[in-house]
């Protein structure tokens, strides 16, 4: 047996990571670098929104209706206040609402992906490892679900779930229902990939060895097989994040997503559309650009990751 010898010439882990295949392919792809920078900026801005935002758009005490409809970079006619990206009808700073909106969009997106991932991986591992009727039942369901577009599915699940929730809790539960709806609409991808990879892995020697020792199936699945099938899952998760953000924006735009008290990017675009005809274009344009930049850069990152992790393309 050959023993693994770490590269001694590179002393610390950071430098070794810098030399890895993935990092090399990353440094060689300008598009991936731009995409990563853009998504990182938006994600950081969203996470630190309460500290970055110049105004608190949800605190009525700090709002001045006289500031309403201020165009970007121009002083307001009454108050003389200047806003980078202008204000909406209630005098809320558009830049601040975008920061808080992106926060909600990203939260829903990440949680939905997490939910879909956990559900899909669990079912995929079981289906792949067990086989038999569990496998055929799950894959039948997956086949049927794949014939429906996922945004439609999220919409239908959201509508049905909303019906079952008592009216008093509908607003408060909306975000969680949305997360579950989008997650349920996307789990199939993960399940299929994990199932396929598991069917390959389970016949390899290391799994047989684990079985011979008498390891519990749950332990074999989680400790031995799962780490070896995570590569493709990460790719799907990245592209799935872009999909989930768009799905959330679509539902919120249609007025059936997050409640108006917690506007996401989709809600902001919905609000902005109302002011299009009266000429206040900035209320619509800036949230749209943010959504687009976010979805596009995450998507590009996913594309790059897929190519980078695919050994056939190296």
């Amino acid at each position: 047996m050959t023993e693994f010898t770490p590269d001694e010439s590179r002393p610390n882990a950071l430098a070794r990571a810098w030399d890895s295949d993935i990092a090399y392919s990353f440094r060689r792809s300008p598009l991936a670098i731009i995409a990563a920078v853009v998504s990182l900026i938006i994600i950081l801005a969203a996470v630190f929104a309460p500290w970055i935002a110049p105004h608190d758009p949800f605190n009525p005490a700090t709002l001045n209706l006289m500031d309403g409809f201020t165009p970007p970079m121009e002083p307001n006619a009454f108050t003389g206040n200047v806003y980078w990206l202008g204000t909406d009808n209630q005098g809320r700073d558009v830049f601040s609402t975008i920061l808080f909106g992106a926060r909600i969009s990203l939260f829903v997106g990440f949680m939905a992906v997490l939910f879909a991932m956990v559900l899909g991986i669990t079912l995929g591992l079981i289906a792949g490892y067990r086989g038999g009727w569990v496998d055929s039942l799950l894959m039948r369901v997956a086949d049927v679900q794949l014939t429906f577009p996922s945004i439609l599915l999220a919409l239908l699940i959201f509508g049905v779930a909303r019906g079952f929730i008592p009216p008093a809790y509908r607003e408060a539960m909306a975000i969680w229902v949305l997360i579950v709806a989008i997650g349920l609409a996307e789990w199939v991808q993960y399940a299929r990939v994990v199932r396929g990879a598991t069917m390959v892995e389970k016949n390899k020697e290391y799994v047989q060895a684990a079985r011979v020792i008498g390891a519990h199936p749950a332990k074999i699945l989680l400790r031995h097989i799962l780490p070896n099938v995570m590569g493709p899952v990460l790719v799907i998760a990245t592209i799935g994040l872009a999909l989930a953000i768009i799905a959330e924006a679509t539902l919120s735009f249609l007025g059936v997503g997050v409640p108006p008290t917690q506007p996401s990017l989709g809600t902001l675009i919905r609000i902005g559309q109302g002011f299009l005809f009266s000429g206040e274009w900035w209320i619509l344009l800036f949230p749209s650009i943010t959504l687009l930049a976010l979805a596009l850069s995450v998507n590009l990152l996913g594309d790059w990751l897929r190519d980078a992790l695919n050994p056939r393309l190296r």
Partner: peptide, 17 residues
């Protein structure tokens, strides 16, 4: 890569408004 609703909104902006 554009979400459907955004395409609609942009078309309205350009061709209707």
């Amino acid at each position: 890569s554009l979400p459907t609703f955004l395409i609609g909104v942009l078309l309205i902006w350009v061709f209707a408004v």
